[in-house]
Each structure stands twice: as C-alpha cells, then as structure tokens.
Design a protein around this nucleic acid. Structure first.
Lengths: 145, 145
DNA sequence: TGGATATGTCAATATAACTTACCTATTATG
DNA sequence: CATAATAGGTAAGTTATATTGACATATCCA
C-alpha cells in the first residue's frame, strides 16, 4: 500500500458505511423465511455456524458469536423445540457437547442460504477472480487486525 | 468471473461469516467511547451519517438506516440532549429538517472514528492498492445486487 | 381546496442482547 | 486424592434497538 490516497478519512468512512449496509442487507434477505419458522437472526447465525462447523461445541459457538451463554442457550432451546439440531457428547471429554443439524435443520439451512446467497453470488459473478480473491484477503486482514 | 471454483457454497458461507465478523468487530471497537457518552451503536450510526452527509434530512437518514421514524426519533432526541447535533429548516421547503453536527458532535465523532479506523486502516495498510480497489468494488456490487 | 409529503409522538410489543448470581458434572493437576 | 479449572445450564431482572398501529401537525403542490 504505497498510494496513501486510498486511505483518506472520507474513504474509510465510506467503507465503514458500506460494511454496515452489506451486513444488514445480507442478514435481512432471509427474514421472510426465518419468520416462517418463527425464528430470528440469532437462530440463523447458529444454524449457519453449525452447518459450517458440524459438531461444533457450545464453547466454540460462544467464541465465534461473542455472546453470553445465557443468550446462546435461549437460541439453542428454540432450535431444539423446532427440532432442527441435536447434541452428541464428546466421547473422550463428556463435558463437551457437540451440536449438529439434523435433516430438517439442513433443509431449513439450505432454504435460508438460498435467499442469502443470491446477493453475494450475483456480485461475485460480475467480478473477476482477482476481485473476489482480493475481497476475501482484505476481509481477512480486517478480521485479524 | 470465469473460474466458478470461487463460487462453491462453502466459500459463500465463509464469506457471509466474515461479513458478520467484520461488521460486528468494526462496530464493537467504539463501544468503550460510546459508553462514556451513554449512547449506543444506533446513535453512532446517526453521528457517522451526519458527519458524512452534513445537512442530511430526516427522511434521507431514514432511507439510509432503514429503520422507522419512531426509532430514529428516539436516537435524535438523545443526541439533542447530549448537545451534539442541531437542525436547520430548509429555506425553500420548510417541512424538511437538515441535521448537522456541532463542534462537540464533530469532536465526539472523531474520537469514535479513531478507534474504528484502526482496524480498517491497518488492514488497508497491509494491502496493495489493487486489493483495496477490488475490495471496494465487490462491496458496491453486493450492495447494488 | 384537497392530497401528498415531512416530521413528530403515544403506546404497546418483540428481539436479542446484557449482568449477576449460582448450579452440576467432569477433567486436570499438584 | 483433593482441589482447581473447564464445560455447560439456569433464574431473574435489565437494557438497547427495533417494531406495529394509530394519530397529529405543518407545509407544499396540483
């Protein structure tokens, strides 16, 4: 990054505004479907993570979501009632609970994901692979900053 | 985008997870300072927008934030009580109210922005200008999708 | 003059998070 | 083996941010 023209305050402000819009819209798109199952974005995030990290533990979920266990517990209870997740005790350390999506859960995840995917997918379709790779790279750098 | 390898579901899921993390962290960094002034992220967003779009109208704010006027009004009242914003009637159409940050507001914005900036700034410093340009391009495409 | 626009406000409700506090069960360690 | 640390659960109350619905006022435009 030699060309510091890219780092003017106004440009950073614009980027922050865009990050807000992208996040909001990405997590607003699925809301009609979430409503259908009487769940919200908090549940969606858990379903998303459990879909990506099958068998993730409760404490790993807490670290990724950065919420309190009381908050997570409410969401997990709802998902159990909705019959979309199940738990399996760790065979070695039985304190640890692993979370999985069952078939219904996987189906609902895909249904949600379809609506959420469109926005990202269409944007990436219109992008060069360089653009996509760079997009991902910068996201990673922001996260690890 | 010819190389469809970049568009596997797992990659899209990872991107969505990263968008969530980047948004959350970007708007978590300033919270210590927001606490100091007894305001929250909702107030921060308004201050941010008014800083970028000086003299923005109420209805323009509503369009950008995509919240109800009841919600916005609560936030604006708090900001008036904190004495960081003021209003000016449009000279032609007196129904329209323009919002401005006063000196205290500008100072507080900068204080908040400093903490928020670090994360983005450091990431961009470590990036090539191509990466930064592409990052911005893809964000725009996601927004306009 | 009547309809649309810009804004304000009251009341009730929902969602998702928080703090504080305390609990059990299990594993790891001195 | 005793004790600390870890993984997880739970209860009560609170806060932040948003919603819906209804209604009010002032101003502009055709």
């Amino acid at each position: 990054m030699k060309d510091l023209l890219y780092l003017k305050d106004q440009q950073l402000k614009d980027l922050i505004e865009k990050l807000f819009i992208v996040y909001r819209d990405t997590f607003t798109d699925p809301k009609k479907i979430l409503n259908k199952y009487s769940i919200g974005t908090a549940h969606h995030k858990v379903i998303h993570l459990v879909s990506t990290y099958e068998g993730i533990s409760i404490s790993e979920l807490l670290k990724k979501l950065k919420i309190t266990k009381q908050s997570l517990n409410r969401v997990l209870k709802d998902l159990v009632k909705l019959e979309v997740i199940n738990f399996k005790k760790d065979e070695i350390d039985t304190r640890i609970k692993h979370v999985y999506l069952n078939e219904k859960g996987k189906k609902i995840f895909l249904e949600i994901f379809e609506t959420q995917k469109k926005r990202i997918y269409n944007a990436l379709l219109e992008s060069s692979s360089d653009e996509v790779v760079n997009f991902d790279k910068v996201l990673k750098k922001i996260i690890n900053g």
